[in-house]
């Protein structure tokens, strides 16, 4: 998994790439820790290049969602591949997370 960050005004865009699994979710958690430490409250997770996610990856996203919520922040997702969208739906996490169709609508929503 690779993660690149980009700033768009007060929004932090996390461009994730590859497979998010138990073998790299600690790395993702560390990146999220830094975002929280910098007090960045608007986060957009760009899933365009994510090919796979397991339950540990999902748990890391839930943690980030909760941490942002606690400080009055927001987390939005966009660019989910249909197979990953299905995983969000099967686990009902699409009810918890805000998943947007385009980057534009996600940015607007934040």
């Amino acid at each position: 998994m690779n993660l690149k960050e980009e700033k768009r005004n007060d929004i932090t865009i996390c461009k994730l790439e590859g497979e998010i699994t138990i073998n790299n979710s600690a790395e993702l958690r560390k990146a999220f820790d830094l975002i929280i430490k910098r007090n960045e409250k608007k986060v957009l997770a760009d899933f365009t290049a994510v090919s796979y996610i397991d339950s540990s990856g999902l748990a890391t996203l839930i943690e980030m969602f909760q941490r942002l919520k606690k400080i009055g922040g927001r987390l939005r997702f966009y660019g989910l591949d249909q197979k990953i969208k299905n995983i969000f739906e099967v686990t009902k996490l699409h009810k918890l997370f805000d998943i947007c169709d385009t980057q534009e609508s996600a940015l607007k929503d934040l």
């Binding site: 397991d54 748990a59 839930i62 909760q66 099967v90 009902k92 996490l93 009810k95």
Partner: peptide
């Protein structure tokens, strides 16, 4: 997947 457990970080596997 139950609403009250959605934020739980275990049991999803």
């Amino acid at each position: 997947a139950h609403t009250e457990n959605l934020t739980k970080t275990s049991g999803r596997g």
